[in-house]
Design a protein around this nucleic acid. Structure first.
Lengths: 237, 237
DNA sequence: CCTGCCCTCGCAGTTTCGGGGGAGTTGAAG
DNA sequence: CTTCAACTCCCCCGAAACTGCGAGGGCAGG
């Protein structure tokens, strides 16, 4: 473990609020000698939840024009498990290049490295370091620092989940196997009649399962129940 | 970075199939001097996908009786972001203690440390090390090794996603903002009339959004579309 | 300029869903 | 032995959702 990493994790232990998280990312900028450091959670405690070093102008601009919708970093990170290097992204979509140009004009470096992080209920965050550098020196930087960044990003996310006390509460009762089967097939788009047929039971029986699953999950209807079940990892569609 | 970790990550680079992954977890047993090492993906390429060192008897038993349903390790890990130590789990649920006893009778150690890992489409896996040890020495082991394990677990999961070539393909087209809004509210359990009202549009217009979202996602009905959207991270309910 | 996408609105008819009632068996836990 | 949860089956009916047919305006990219 590098000394830098040690320092960071130590600081993180003493972090118990959003403000000190903000100062942590500012410190990280100096520690790793980069232009910007960003922790950006897309769906925690009212999006967006963030600790970042970008200028306010750029952040306002970004939010105002909803640039997240065309930002290739976000769009790509949502579908990836690995960290991603900005220069390997697809910048061809309309508006992407323009956005990058404006970003750089607003003080961003030309290089970036972003790690996607995912929580138990689909809480999704990005951890990004950004700097101005030539490709070659940036490559050696990322190669050296990749593991530090992975650990830091996870510990920060962990801390955020704690701060925002995202409960890890269980749903009232567990679902029974039949209830899970039912939700599973519902999530695949089948109707009650078809599912009942496939499970070899009467449609009325199946309805009982849908109802009890709905009740246990506190859902208003089948669609809601499926959404809850999928996002809680109860079923995998 | 410890030398152990270096060795492991190096080996992992040369890993390109499920068999070599299996031998990697066997090696890990020796490298970290533990009883068992398990990588267990719950929803990749037909569940369960696993590389593990448990005895076949125990695995068969586990699958046959669907012990995953009562195993506190799995049940808890599904709702947690942090790694979890088995001895801090809640073993009171009916059958849990019994199961642990049988597990130990089948060659498991009494101590365990499990890390949950999540992929972009909700691919969920567990990485577990298991050993026989007194609480005290186990605690110092986990404290020392926690970061190694976090990195190893992530690299293994990454490798598995590659091996099983889980595509990171985008859905055909992106959803429009209205379509996403619509799915979002559907996922919250509201009816079309209510959503139309909230969005300030006619119910018929809303229907067009539901239909086009359904079409873009290749879904059979609204419930299916919501399930796809939630599991793809397009919406966060 | 035209194509394509996004946003908006409408009717009629069929199917499915959800609310409201029931009832009986098994099996495991207390 | 009782209790409780899970699993199975049945009815009626109103309210939703889905199907299939339309229509037009606005705005961007090729």
């Amino acid at each position: 473990m590098t000394r830098k990493l040690e320092t960071v994790l130590e600081t993180l232990k003493g972090t118990h609020c959003a403000e000190s998280l903000q100062s942590l990312v500012e410190d990280l900028r100096g520690i790793y000698d980069v232009e910007h450091v960003v922790y950006h959670a897309l769906n925690i405690a009212g999006s967006p939840y963030a600790a970042l070093t970008y200028t306010n102008e750029w952040v306002d601009r970004y939010i105002e024009e909803d640039l997240g919708r065309i930002d290739p970093v976000i769009q790509t990170a949502m579908r990836r498990f690995h960290p991603l290097d900005w220069k390997r992204l697809d910048w061809t979509p309309p508006g992407a290049r323009t956005m990058l140009g404006e970003a750089i004009a607003n003080g961003l470096g030309n290089q970036g490295y972003t790690l996607p992080i995912r929580g138990p209920r689909g809480q999704f965050a990005l951890f990004t370091v950004n700097a101005s550098a030539a490709d070659r020196s940036w490559d050696s930087f990322t190669a050296e620092t990749a593991q530090d960044l992975m650990l830091i990003s996870h510990f920060i996310h962990q801390k955020v989940l704690e701060i925002e006390n995202v409960e890890e509460k269980a749903p009232g009762r567990e679902l029974s196997p039949r209830e899970r089967d039912t939700l599973h097939f519902l999530a695949l788009g089948y109707g009650r009649a078809q599912i009942a047929d496939r499970l070899g039971i009467s449609e009325h029986t199946l309805r009982v399962y849908v109802d009890s699953a709905r009740f246990k999950l506190g859902a208003l209807n089948a669609t809601h129940a499926v959404a809850v079940a999928v996002s809680s990892g109860i079923i995998f569609p």
